[in-house]
């Protein structure tokens, strides 16, 4: 049970990551592999703020997320948008975003060194809480609570506001939305802001469990992609479930096989879903293919 609880908690952070990815993907229709790295930079900024200015964890997290949002917006408007306008296929953009990932990862390695930085909500080691015989640490509580809160806010935003409705409309049919007179480019930018914001929050939460490393940019974007694909690309609830499933599967994998097979478990899960149910648990559409 403890393993499943741990899995659910880290899974809720993966889910947040996956939701952001899914949201961006559903409006732009390409895979942005730099997504995870931008989020990790947000976590790094939070780490620096906590250590040099001894800021509170939540404030540092928000500040880091703002920096990440700035980078995310720049990458979209300087790189990806012009590429789409030049008629680049989704594969071309996928490869280019990988280039951006490599650049950002190595710049982070230059700034923050190639080691794991530990992050915790408090300097002291706090005792865990006992919950029906299960132990939950304050760090884990923070992860679960913030992830849940973010998801609720996002769900309300998408369902209740005009902006949210426009975002969902683009996800359904971009051309039709344009014809109706909505400013799609502005909405795409807004989606980048929201998606990057929650991804940076999520990366800072995950950092509580596994620390921060430059290579986590790749790891996290892969987890986001897996969570999003399992749930069905473009579906918020799907990504939530996908993230939780991935978290539990990984923790069970660690328990039964050992931590060194973590990536293997994650990718096997991805391959099985792509083969057996490529549209994911909740999707309206199949994964877009080139042919």
């Amino acid at each position: 049970m403890q393993i499943i609880l741990n899995g659910l908690i880290v899974g809720s952070a993966y889910a947040l990551m996956g939701i952001g990815f899914s949201l961006i993907y559903s409006t732009v229709r390409y895979f942005n592999l730099a997504y995870g790295m931008v989020a990790v930079i947000g976590a790094y900024v939070a780490y620096t703020l906590m250590n040099s200015w001894s800021l509170n964890y939540v404030i540092a997290m928000l500040a880091g997320a703002l920096v990440a949002v700035l980078i995310g917006m720049l990458s979209s408007s300087i790189l990806f948008k012009p590429m789409v306008r030049r008629g680049g296929s989704s594969l071309v953009i996928l490869v280019a975003s990988f280039g951006l990932l490599i650049i950002l990862q190595n710049i982070s390695a230059l700034i923050w060194q190639n080691t794991t930085r530990a992050l915790s909500i408090s300097d002291r080691i706090l005792p865990g809480y006992n919950l029906f015989g299960l132990i939950i640490t304050p760090n884990q509580l923070m992860i679960g609570a913030v992830a849940l809160l973010m998801m609720l806010i996002l769900e309300l935003f998408l369902k209740k506001t005009r902006y949210g409705m426009a975002i969902r409309a683009i996800g359904d049919n971009q051309e039709l939305t344009k014809v109706l007179g909505l400013k799609t480019e502005q909405i795409i930018l807004a989606v980048y802001v929201i998606g990057t914001f929650i991804s940076a929050i999520s990366a800072t939460l995950i950092a509580l469990e596994i620390g921060i490393r430059p290579t986590h940019g790749v790891t996290l974007v892969i987890k986001a992609i897996i969570a999003a694909i399992i749930g069905g690309l473009g579906s918020i609830r799907g990504a939530l479930l996908g993230g939780l499933l991935l978290g539990v599967a990984e923790n069970l994998g660690i328990y039964f096989l050992g931590g060194q097979w973590q990536d293997t478990v994650a990718f096997t899960l991805l391959a099985v879903f792509l083969l057996v149910r490529p549209e994911g648990l909740f999707a309206k559409k199949r994964l877009v293919s080139v042919n």
């Binding site: 992609i225 792509l274 994964l287 293919s289 080139v290």
Partner: peptide
């Protein structure tokens, strides 16, 4: 698999 999902797997 095709396209993006081929690349991912």
């Amino acid at each position: 698999l095709k396209g993006d999902s081929f690349v991912l797997v």
